[in-house]
Design a protein around this nucleic acid. Sequence first.
DNA 1: ATATTACGTGTTATAATATAACATTTCATT
DNA 2: AATGAAATGTTATATTATAACACGTAATAT
Lengths: 132, 132
Amino acid sequence: MPLKNENLTRNQKIVLDLLKNTKEPLGAYTILTNIEKKGIKAPLQVYRALDKLIESGKVHKIESKNAYIICKNSNCNSLKSTSFLICEKCDSVSEIKRNNLKQDLSILSEESGFNYANHNLEIYGLCKSCGD
Amino acid sequence: MPLKNENLTRNQKIVLDLLKNTKEPLGAYTILTNIEKKGIKAPLQVYRALDKLIESGKVHKIESKNAYIICKNSNCNSLKSTSFLICEKCDSVSEIKRNNLKQDLSILSEESGFNYANHNLEIYGLCKSCGD
DNA sequence: ATATTACGTGTTATAATATAACATTTCATT
DNA sequence: AATGAAATGTTATATTATAACACGTAATAT
């Protein structure tokens, strides 16, 4: 049951607001540094807010970077799954939106007798701007 | 230039031997604990061995678990890319071997004007044994 | 053969990422 | 107002990973 924005708590809003205004993924301690002026003092406050935002699909974690980014898909169909294109040159990240990706990966899994639940896909390369 | 086994150094062999005999992915500090009796005393010795083993494709890192596992594909075509099926029940991990996966992901990337280089794919679910 | 170069090692310290534990506060709902 | 569920504030600590530097070893190029 994805939360609506109105249901966000103070700390969650602060963290989400910061991520809204940032293109690159941010580490938890970078987030902390950037919101200390708003009264957030401890890492745990950041991690707790991130946990909730991730649960509700508003934020995703990029595992290979230990960094967090806002979800731009208004109706992100995958709360637990993530699919990213990560530019190795400019560090920009975009989400793959193709909605049959989960299905494709599910089929791929079945080929090995594996029952798909969710996934993390992190593709590295050059984005449109950097790849020219 | 993938190293042959004969070229491995003492510490690399010790780490690789441990991973050879382990089904589940192991964290660096778990590895350390298990090879202290062989004279390895510091985390850095483990991380340095892992770095080299990863470079040569003998070991992969599972990013979402901060854990390391041996590569069973004798001719692992992807040194920098990884594709795993991870069982949420028994923690077993198997590599996806389908050799056109890189190509499929490359095509998928191109759809967004993104120039594919490599990827991490971590699929969670239930393995054959656990899924029944 | 020996000076050089490159790489691996051992060691200590520290950085970066993340969670445990517990007392307190907020806030919606009885 | 009383209750209960969840968020907060705070301190401490766990977990994962790297920096820095001195030393050793082995291949090789002059």
